[in-house]
Amino acid sequence: MATPTLLQGEQTARRTTVFMKILMASTGALFVFYVLMHMYGNLKIFFGYQAFDEYAEHLREMLTPILPHTGFLWLFRVLLILSLFVHAYAAFTLWSRANGARPQRYAVKSAAKGAARSKMMRWGGVALLAFLVFHLVQFTIAKVNFNGNFTAAQLGDSTGKLVIASFQLWWVVLIYVVAMVALGMHLFHGVWSGAQTLGLTDSAASRRLAHATAHVVAGVVVIGFLLPPLAILFGLVK
């Protein structure tokens, strides 16, 4: 419940909801960069699982010998995990705040388009979080193979082979299609929203640019990520 009082003394920007939004936007920007790189790496599968595995190995070798083997990768992973934590924490905080900001709902649902968009971001974000766990378990942490046509010995420690084996299953592809559509929608609003939150959209031209960028990023990511699974499912990559 709000208290009808005027705050006294100095206030700091770091404790405002807008700062929280800026955190979300900055971490979101990092994810957009990461997702684009990830998508680019995935396309290596079209040159065979060897190319894919070489690329993956190369990531582990980055900045050696300044850093030890997998050093860069782990630094990046830590950064991503921290960012994910911040992004999700800010999102859940703002979400619960928004719920508290309107304890008594309207009898007639708001006709404004905004309500749907907000819901989409939040539930879409939750769905993406769940997918992320599944995805990491599947390909990074446990390297789970669901395809009975391949034995563990056949796959060896090649992630490329595991990818090909996994996406020969229609239901795995389906999970990824759903997840990528969710990701696309998240980016579609998120990229524009992040630009606005970072204060980059103060002219008509910059607003148009931000909207266009959001469309392009969302489209490129969805198509780029779904090309390999679909190609594998339809036997174009073996």
Partner: peptide, 26 residues
């Protein structure tokens, strides 16, 4: 100004912005 106003806004119990644009439409 902006810091003080936003801090008071949050203190009052308004929600945060998610850039939905519903406000400008209304």
């Amino acid at each position: 100004r902006v810091v003080k106003m936003v801090a008071q806004h949050d203190h009052e119990g308004f929600g945060g912005c998610t850039n939905t644009g519903a406000c400008a439409d209304a």
